[in-house]
């Protein structure tokens, strides 16, 4: 009987977590409209603080100086696992400079982030490694939210193999498509490559990284890559790194940041003859580069000064941190446009 219970408990745990997730979703979506009702009053506060701030000296270009110590409340964000390490660094710095509230960053994939931002309205900020889709903008509309896009940087996908792999240093997009779908052995793709099974390690289907790869390499059709044999999927990039380093015949891809962290254990392949570098990514010649965004909404930013300040803070300091995290800084013109968007959202 005791063990009976044990198994049951295990089961309850698995199922309960699912059930909770389901309940959480619906409960939040009911709560969301309340925030709209409260917009009016705090708005004046936000405007006041914005006026005060604009009176001070302009800092790093066009945005008002942020004083994190003067703010209260929380910032709730969720989204891309690729943006996560960057957002984490920015949030840490925000807290270090005296922000008293909490900054929540959930790493649940771009799609998941938008779901919470646009459908359940749980989050103030959505992190994404792709532009928002029209359908997501529509759902946001239903909640009375109009997503505003802030570009914070660029990520390049790294196609990586083990250090022991001595045959793959440069690969075309066509070869990639074959490697990650129908090919059984390396020699099926290129006769000069060994007749060994291809072991594939790819990010999970919920990740923006997966979406982005499928979009670029398979023209948005995920059937071929999911149907491939010897394919391991994981949302945990370290699981992928572990797998890829495990065999000379393994291959995988993930955000450049993870490659940077594990550069001594992995080889990166050039795509169509182009290495991932600041120049090639910035010039968009590297085929697997993608923009990184954070999204919010004007009414949220006006209603919650701490959210506006957090975004301001991110846009102001992101370039001081992003290289450390492993991504490429956004083009200055693009960043400037994001800052302009912030000012517009705040009614300036």
């Amino acid at each position: 009987m005791k063990t009976n219970k044990l198994i049951l408990t295990l089961f309850v745990l698995i199922v309960a977590s699912l059930a909770l997730a389901a309940c959480g979703g619906s409960a939040e979506s009911i709560a969301a409209p309340q925030t709209e009702d409260e917009v009016a009053e705090p708005q004046t506060v936000a405007e006041e603080s914005a006026e005060e701030a604009s009176a001070e000296e302009m800092h790093e270009g066009m945005l008002p100086m942020v004083d994190p110590t003067a703010l209260s409340g929380d910032v709730v964000s969720a989204g891309s696992s690729t943006v996560f390490p960057l957002a984490e660094v920015m949030a840490e710095r925000f807290l270090d400079e005296g922000f008293a509230g909490q900054v929540t960053i959930d790493s649940i994939g771009s799609g998941g982030g938008f779901e919470r931002f646009c459908e359940t309205g749980e989050t103030d900020v959505s992190n994404a490694s792709r532009p928002i889709k029209d359908s997501e903008v529509e759902s946001c509309g239903a909640l009375g939210r109009t997503p505003i896009e802030f570009r914070v940087g660029t990520d390049a996908l790294a196609v990586v193999v083990s250090k022991e792999n001595d045959f793959l240093s440069d690969v075309t997009l066509e070869e990639l498509a074959a490697i990650f779908s129908t090919a059984e052995k390396w020699s099926d793709v290129n006769a000069e490559w060994p007749a060994e099974d291809i072991l594939r390690y790819i990010p999970g289907t919920d990740s923006g990284t997966f979406d982005y790869f499928v979009e670029e390499v398979f023209d948005k059709d995920e059937a071929p890559i999911l149907g491939a044999s010897n394919t391991q999927l994981s949302e945990d990039d370290n699981v992928l790194v572990q797998g890829i380093t495990g065999s000379p015949y393994a291959i995988g891809f993930f955000g450049y940041a993870y490659y940077a962290e594990n550069a001594e254990r992995l080889n990166i392949a050039a795509i169509d003859g182009i290495e991932a570098s600041a120049e090639t990514v910035d010039a968009a010649t590297y085929p697997l580069a993608r923009p990184l965004y954070i999204y919010s909404d004007a009414s949220i930013m006006q209603e919650k000064p701490q959210v506006a300040a957090y975004i301001n803070f991110c846009l102001t300091y992101v370039n001081e941190e992003i290289v450390e995290v492993g991504y490429f800084p956004a083009n200055p013109a693009v960043l400037e446009a994001a800052q302009q968007a912030w000012l517009e959202a705040m009614g300036q």
């Binding site: 698995i14 998941g112 594939r200 990740s207 994981s234």
Partner: peptide
């Protein structure tokens, strides 16, 4: 990753493993 194989040295995903992986995502 789901894999129908009788080779114990190959990777294959179990029922519980799949539930965890899938429910861990969004």
């Amino acid at each position: 990753g789901s894999n129908f194989t009788f080779n114990p040295f190959e990777a294959a995903e179990t029922m519980t493993g799949h539930i965890v992986r899938i429910s861990g995502g969004d």
